[in-house]
């Protein structure tokens, strides 16, 4: 067992754990945001740099600090390591820069985007972003692509996190899409626009941190915060059949996987559950899904009113240190 201190909180972890995983074991404000790392996908992480942290003390044996900020999702902990996330002004400043970089080419079309309200980048830029942008150059623009009849790809919004590529590679037998070109002009594409057609391709939508991949069966039907998320299950031969049904009255508008507090699905679900079963009789409704209080999806759902609960600062966001 290795001892690691993150933001003055000590925790014992197994060898091979990354700093991000250790921070997630502590939970709360200590957890760095992650746009590309996805614990359920092998080899994910290390691309977006939004999880940068400062290592103040390398290890018990070698107490020198690491000279540069490290990506917590891909750095394993050492025994006696001391890490600063919210306590370090340098980290907060760097994260602000990362958000700015991610937003250079990201269009401000949240009013149109179906992901708005449950978008990681929206949360990240709300937490760390700036009011102003320094870029005056036009953003890159691509036409929208229909990847098959079920998935819509909007490359303008893509932040090159690779999650969808990894999901396709690890969940399905044969992936039919990948990254083309390099750097700024990089884009997700399928092999000569072939439709992605296999049972688990819909999970690309769930793993996408932004609105680049969205559900065509739900396209523009409603805003997520007008829907009631309900835990639902059914007998399914291909997957666990445990999903969240997003309902409006008695109508199911869309089906997604059950996402945990870090925005990762608990279990990947199959396309039949996701796209085809939109009738309430197909599902056993277990009860309302708890969504984080600070999410816009929970707005106007007064399950429990605490005195002054509205004027309290939003939980989970970290203010930059002075």
């Amino acid at each position: 067992m290795l001892k690691v201190i993150i933001d003055n909180i000590e925790i014992q972890v197994e060898e091979g754990t990354t700093i991000l995983q250790a921070a997630r074991m502590i939970g709360g404000k200590v957890v760095p945001p992650a746009m590309c790392y996805y614990s359920k996908l092998k080899d994910s992480g290390g691309k977006c740099r939004s999880c940068l942290v400062k290592v103040v003390k390398g290890s018990a044996k070698d107490p020198r600090p690491v000279p540069k900020l490290v990506a917590s999702c891909s750095t394993p902990v050492q025994d006696g390591m001391v890490v600063e996330n919210t306590l370090s002004a340098e980290v907060q400043e760097a994260r602000k820069g990362v958000v700015e970089m991610l937003l250079i080419n990201h269009p401000l079309d949240c009013p149109v985007c179906d992901q708005a309200g449950e978008c990681d980048l929206q949360d990240l830029s709300f937490g760390f972003g700036m009011e102003e942008t320094e870029t005056i150059e036009p953003r890159r623009e691509y036409p929208g692509i229909d990847i098959g009849p079920l998935i819509k790809l909007n490359m303008n919004r893509c932040i090159h996190c690779y999650r969808c590529v990894l999901a396709a590679e690890q969940l399905t037998k044969k992936r039919a899409h990948g990254m083309l070109y390099r750097g700024d002009t990089m884009e997700i594409s399928t092999f000569i626009q072939t439709a992605i057609d296999n049972d688990f391709s819909g999970n690309m939508i769930d793993v996408c941190p932004v609105g680049a991949l969205t559900d065509r069966t739900f396209r523009f039907r409603s805003r997520v915060w007008f829907l009631n998320p309900m835990d639902a299950r059914r007998e399914c031969g291909k997957c666990s059949g445990k999903v969240v049904a997003w309902m409006f009255g008695k109508e199911i508008y869309r089906i997604t996987g059950r996402k945990d507090q870090f925005g990762e699905v608990e279990e990947f679900i199959c396309n039949e559950c996701r796209f085809e079963k939109k009738d309430i009789n197909d599902w056993v409704i277990e009860g309302p899904r708890k969504i984080k209080r600070q999410s816009v999806i929970s707005s106007n759902h007064y399950e429990q009113m605490k005195k002054g609960s509205i004027i309290h600062p939003i939980e989970g966001t970290t203010e930059p240190q002075e």
Binding site: C110, P111, A116, F220, R223, W225, F226, N300
Partner: peptide, 9 residues
């Protein structure tokens, strides 16, 4: 109007 729903919320 782009039907973003912010007025409704």
């Amino acid at each position: 109007c782009t039907a973003c729903g912010l007025c409704a919320v």
